[in-house]
């Protein structure tokens, strides 16, 4: 269990990250604020409490790997990498500018801390599986963590990987589904129903853990449990709210696309995000 103080600090950092994301997205008139907000607690927890990484040695062969398979939520990842000191915070001002390296889909572009270029659905999880396999071959006792979108689970390559990773007994692979129940054109259960999602992953021979993806204690327990797996990869089904943290965009799929403007920013200010 996390202490009360730890939780207070994690919540504080989550707020800071949301502020940063809002700033970047508004400045760039960019999209994808809501899917970036739904994974803030997951990323904050991983980068603060789990990942064995060193911003001074971003290519350390003995590091844990994090891959954002839902590459469109990259404003959250850039923000947390800057917070961890992988690069200077002022670089975040370059998000989506002419000639900038920080583009709106996760791209390596020599940016320290970015492990794979993603953005097209269904790539990050199999890339992560390959990296987990490489760790096994090199006998490196580290793990690969991948955040996958729920809509992304429509892709065949996700289920191909579900087969490959369990067949190869990749117990060092931890995938987290950001289950915010929205995909590009509607509710996941209306567009293409994923349920029963837990049973599907269990049937593919993964360890399945279901949690509230905004609750640090639940995230903590899930990740700790994933580390105990003897021979199965782990999938954490994290129930989340798309746009979590800014009331006007919460559970509203318009903000998969729309940039917050005046009316949203007034509310953001009231809620302490500006």
């Amino acid at each position: 269990m996390l202490t009360e103080k730890e939780i207070i600090n994690l919540n504080k950092l989550s707020k800071e990250i949301r502020k940063q994301i809002l700033k970047m997205i508004v400045k760039a008139t960019a999209s994808h604020i809501a899917p970036s907000y739904s994974i803030v607690e997951l990323l904050v927890y991983l980068y603060e409490k789990v990942l064995k990484i060193n911003p001074k040695k971003p290519k350390d062969p003995n590091r844990d790997i994090f891959i954002l398979s839902k590459g469109w939520a990259v404003s959250c990842l850039y923000s947390i990498l800057a917070h961890k000191g992988f690069f200077e915070k002022k670089l975040l001002d370059n998000y989506c500018i002419d000639g900038g390296k920080m583009i709106a889909m996760t791209t390596i572009n020599d940016i320290p801390g970015i492990e794979a270029s993603t953005g097209s659905a269904g790539h990050g999880l199999p890339i992560g599986a390959g990296m987990a396999m490489a760790m096994k071959l090199k006998k490196i006792d580290r793990r690969v963590y991948v955040i996958v979108g729920d809509g992304e689970c429509d892709e065949g390559s996700i289920w191909e990987t579900a087969l490959i990773a369990s067949h190869q007994k990749l117990n060092n692979l931890v995938a987290i589904i950001d289950y915010n129940k929205w995909q590009s054109f509607g509710r996941t259960n209306e567009v293409l129903n994923l349920e029963p999602l837990k049973n599907k992953w269990e049937a593919f021979n993964w360890q399945v853990i279901e949690i509230d993806g905004h609750n640090f204690n639940e995230i903590d327990l899930a990740i700790k449990k994933s580390h105990l797996s003897k021979n199965k990869p782990t999938i954490v089904i994290a129930h989340t709210v798309k746009g979590k943290g800014l009331s006007i965009i919460e559970d509203n799929n318009d903000y998969h696309y729309k940039t917050p403007r005046e009316k949203e920013l007034i509310i953001a200010k009231k809620e302490g995000l500006i």
């Binding site: 199999p126 890339i127 990987t161 490959i164």
Partner: peptide
Amino acid sequence: TEQASISFVAG
């Protein structure tokens, strides 16, 4: 699984 395989190879 050609699709996942290519990404796995990339990993």
